[in-house]
Design a protein around this nucleic acid. Structure first.
Length: 280
DNA sequence: GGGCGCCTATAAAAGGG
DNA sequence: CCCTTTTATAGGCGCCC
């Protein structure tokens, strides 16, 4: 079944089942029975409030769960997890974003092991960078300044440049996947596919072409995910597949006007390009 | 650090099925 | 309700002081 936070959990034991959901579409329906391992480190549940009924799980059980899942003792990870939970809540982020950030945090710590021991790069700065990356991979990037403020509100000395520095460092070491235009398009395509809108590889390629054809400076500053979405919309429309702005926006949890604005912009730019080509 | 203008994303509303 | 389009507003970012 699906927890109120949109988390697939086992109906009988409450363990998180199935891959975490990071896209914007609605979670899958139906029961998931039994225990499923998620990449090796998820050994328990961190469902702090039971998905069924209103009774709270005991504090002791919650602590036990966290210890089992994230390692015993007073590890830095536990502290980070707690802070991430509070900060994500303050930022109004759903639990899966927090979870994802924590997964990335652990990866970053592993990649930057030698640096994190130092004074300049603290665990919390890494956690802040992880939050930036998780929100980015999810298609809803949170500006480093906003993250830094949220961390500072909790007393952590985190600046936007700290976040950017750590991301840069980890990227140079190959610890951070690069999100290309194609990745973003695939992400959008996967969301559409769940709604029965067929998006094959050729469509993705065409959309990629559209985005590459557009001069950078015309679209700088715009949300790349919205642009990717708009490109997909255009390509689909060109192929006679009709989706409304309304539906597209609802699926992706965006505003219809933003989707439309980006589509119109791309249309305009493509038209300008055609004219330029015709004149040359 | 503000104050200011520019720009984007979004919510809300308007208006037509 | 489903959809498109317009309008108003919030919030970011750079720039200037």
């Amino acid at each position: 079944m699906v927890s109120p936070e949109g988390f697939p959990v086992c109906s009988s034991c409450g363990l998180v089942a199935q891959e975490l959901i990071f896209d914007w579409s609605t979670p899958p329906d139906g029961d998931v029975k039994g225990r499923i391992y998620l990449g090796g480190w998820e050994e328990g549940s961190i469902i702090t409030n039971p998905p069924l009924g209103g009774s709270r799980v005991s504090e002791r059980l919650v602590k036990l769960n966290i210890r089992v899942k994230y390692g015993g003792g007073r590890s830095a990870d536990r502290e980070v997890f707690r802070e991430l939970t509070v900060i994500c809540k303050a930022l109004g982020l759903p639990r899966e974003v927090c979870e994802h950030a924590f997964i990335i945090y652990r990866k970053l710590v592993r990649v930057l092991r030698d640096v994190v021991a130092g004074r300049r790069v603290t665990h919390f700065k890494v956690a802040a960078a992880a939050l930036a990356l998780s929100s980015r991979s999810e298609g809803r990037p949170i500006p480093p300044l906003k993250i830094a403020k949220a961390f500072r509100a909790r007393g952590h000395l985190v600046s936007p440049s700290d976040i950017m520095e750590i991301v840069h460092l980890a990227r140079r070491r190959g610890g951070v996947p690069r999100y290309t235009t194609r990745d973003m398009l695939r992400l959008c395509a996967a969301v559409l596919a769940k709604l029965g809108v067929k998006v094959d590889e050729a469509v993705v390629r065409d959309a990629e072409e559209v985005l590459h054809a557009v001069p950078r400076h015309y679209v700088s500053g715009r949300d790349p995910h919205l642009l990717a979405l708009a490109a997909l919309y255009l390509v689909l429309k060109r192929r006679g597949v009709s989706i409304s702005y309304y539906r597209l926006a609802r699926i992706t949890r965006r505003a219809t006007s933003s989707v439309r604005a980006n589509v119109k912009l791309l249309e305009k730019l493509l038209h300008m390009r055609e004219v330029a080509v015709a004149l040359s």
